[in-house]
């Protein structure tokens, strides 16, 4: 060990260290790298990428084609890549993607608190609003990647396994040309993203409020479970329309022969409403919170 070299002329009237600019702290690239090499990130993406192939293999074991008479979404999954991707999205959106989004958004601040690294970031100093903003952007980015990568991989897997066919609509068995559906499919993925925004925002708020990453992730998943349970209570009537999970399957409407977007519009409205308020609370809490972890 040797003594450090001579000090740089560090003083200036603003009190900033040379080269320090609050607006340049915690660049997105740095946060992405910080999060990317984590095992849970890798494992989640591995799972999301493998799931379509697992499903493809699972369908090979079935009792073969049942004559194509059944018009349920699950029975139409083998009708082509697009059908398969729609099926994969429908089976994963209700839980797997919720967990993925809750993980990326719930873990982001809480795990830093858990590792004690949060206090060093704040003392760097990264302004608190900026820290939250950068972390939120990166967490949402990972969530978006998770929600996107699954249907895209399913599209690839389904196309390789079952061919590139026009989509068959569940219920009526009508056929819609693949070229017509592809843009709608982008819309579906976009909607799936927006509908997961509530989960993301709830997880983020909990992440700011607790030092336990598991608590934040579990809390957000718990919210979804409670909402789903309330959704089943018919007595609530139209109140259910305002439950955060109520419109999660509305994207199915976009794939019907006569697309009806009213459910998706309502879903976006509800989702954005909850998310904006939850995220606002997250910022409010974090601004003057005593960081004791």
């Amino acid at each position: 060990m040797s003594a450090p070299a001579s000090p740089a002329a560090g003083e200036n009237t603003l009190g900033y260290a040379p080269g320090y600019t609050p607006g340049r702290t915690l660049p997105l690239r740095v946060e992405i790298v910080r999060q990317f090499r984590r095992r849970r990130t890798m494992a989640m993406f591995a799972l999301l990428l493998a799931l379509p192939w697992v499903l493809v293999v699972a369908f090979q074991f079935g009792p073969g084609s049942n004559g194509g008479n059944s018009l349920r979404l699950s029975d139409l999954a083998t009708a082509g890549g697009l059908n398969f991707a729609a099926f994969a999205l429908s089976v994963s959106a209700s839980f797997l993607l919720v967990v993925a989004v809750a993980l990326f958004c719930g873990d982001t601040v809480a795990s830093e608190a858990n590792w004690s690294s949060l206090r060093y970031l704040l003392a760097a100093p990264i302004p608190r609003d900026r820290l939250l903003r950068q972390k939120l952007i990166v967490a949402l980015g990972y969530s978006a990647a998770a929600v996107t990568v699954l249907p895209l991989m399913a599209l690839l897997a389904g196309t390789l396994a079952f061919g590139w066919n026009d989509i068959r609509v569940p219920g009526t068995g009508e056929i819609i040309a693949a070229s017509d559906v592809l843009p709608k499919f982008a819309l579906v993925i976009g909607y799936a993203l927006v509908s997961q925004l509530v989960v993301a925002a709830m997880a983020f708020l909990l992440s700011v409020s607790t030092d336990s990453p598991l608590g934040a992730v579990g809390g957000a998943v718990g919210l979804v479970i409670v909402s789903s349970i309330l959704q089943a209570v018919e007595a609530l009537g139209s109140f259910r329309e305002f439950l955060p999970t109520f419109w999660n399957t509305a994207w199915l409407d976009a794939l019907s022969p006569q697309p009806d977007y009213s459910g998706m519009i309502k879903g976006v409205s509800v989702s954005v409403t909850y998310s904006v308020i939850l995220i606002a609370f997250a910022f409010r809490r974090f601004r003057r919170k005593d960081v004791v972890s």
Binding site: G10, E11, L14, G15, Y16, A17, Y20, P22, Y120, L122, A123, A124, P125, I126, P127, R128, D129, R130, R287, R288
Partner: peptide, 12 residues
């Protein structure tokens, strides 16, 4: 204050 720029001159 939280996030004060002068903290950039502090190592902790």
């Amino acid at each position: 204050v939280p996030g004060a720029p002068v903290l950039s001159r502090l190592g902790s």
